[in-house]
Nucleic acid binder design. Structure first.
Lengths: 197, 197
DNA sequence: CATCTATGTCAACGGCGATTGACTTAGCGG
DNA sequence: CCGCTAAGTCAATCGCCGTTGACATAGATG
């Protein structure tokens, strides 16, 4: 998170096409998530400490940059590390906290939401979600009807992320406790092979 | 839904400031939901059969129009009509269908999503969601810890709407059956005053 | 050191869209 | 029938942004 490539450079970086490309890509991921597709290339380039013209040279144009940034934002979702015993409560706690306490995930998720609500990018997103979201969850869940269960799982997870985003701050006091209890219960149920009575 | 004010007029409408204002507002609700904030005022005005300049006269500007359209999109969510015995399965079925089968709700929801991912409108949305979404659900749920339970309920509901949006089409066959079973089970649990074991 | 190329900079162009104010006209009151 | 005002139209303006190609230079190669 303290990747020096993200910081504004006082001195120009040593000439390095690959590093510059990456810096632009990182800035794009952030700006597209925070501001949306309407952020300016000048802003992206500025944050990357590069020039607008390089966007064209390295990516071809804004549209192409968007697609690449979108793909790059769904690289490694490390859900094989989730402990089946404890993940439910951990996720629930994370969801009760402020979205600001979790910038990386929040940015990626905003990106996804934006792409989902744009007619041009929606088809692309469909494929990505299948491959890098539904697929892994399905594998992790295992058992019968894993596809349908993965859908329900993913939908719930997304919903809580949206709620956290809209809420904007951490839950407090008793509401927080109840929220965590309920949400972790739901995730436990969602993992089970057989639904509730 | 077959409001004549929405249709493109071959003949100019009789001069009527209020009707024109409404027509613009309706067109704005639709365009902002489908295309997003970047739709053009010309498109909105065109669909309303009015001129761009009238947007300024009646609303002041694009930003103000957006806010007003957002507010207007959350008028009456008629959830007092929900039958507590059957609503879970009805909702689950609706969520398994195509978003296109439910245009009105889909448009409103896309609008909400867009507003949620825009820094300028997020605060406004927070208030709106509290008043017209969380509040009614809380009342409808009743019982202890209604606020926290309403949050969980709303979050789940939102999540399934997002999933349906991304999916883009109706579920089929066995996956559909399982999906409906699971989702309606979840909503039943969400309604109950006590959580699952 | 000379040269050459990949890398980075700069300024201008072209289009688009919101805004604005002047202009036209319908429709009503007298 | 006459004008007056609210409603609607039109075209010009202004700024912004993506794109583009010409230019500058670091740094490697020999």
């Amino acid at each position: 998170m303290t990747d020096p490539a993200l910081l504004v450079r006082s001195r120009p970086r040593r000439r390095d096409a690959e590093a510059t490309r990456q810096a632009i890509l990182e800035a794009a991921k952030k700006q597209f998530a925070l501001v949306g597709y309407d952020c300016t290339l000048r802003d992206i380039a500025g944050e990357a400490g590069a020039d607008v013209a390089l966007v064209k040279r390295y990516f071809g144009g804004k549209e192409a940059l968007f697609v690449e940034a979108l793909k790059a934002s769904f690289g490694s979702d490390d859900l094989s590390e989730w402990d089946r015993q404890t993940f439910a409560r951990e996720i629930a706690t994370m969801l009760a906290d402020s979205p600001h306490a979790d910038e990386a995930r929040t940015h990626r998720f905003q990106f996804l939401l934006r792409a989902a609500t744009s007619p041009t990018t929606a088809p692309l997103l469909n494929v990505l979600v299948q491959e890098r979201f539904l697929g892994p969850i399905r594998e992790w869940l295992g058992g019968v009807d894993a596809q349908a269960r993965a859908r329900v799982f993913a939908a719930s997870y997304i919903g809580f992320l949206v709620e956290r985003l809209i809420r904007g701050e951490a839950l407090q006091g008793r509401e927080r406790e109840i929220f965590i209890d309920r949400v972790s219960a739901i995730f436990t149920v969602l993992t089970a092979e057989a639904g509730p009575a």
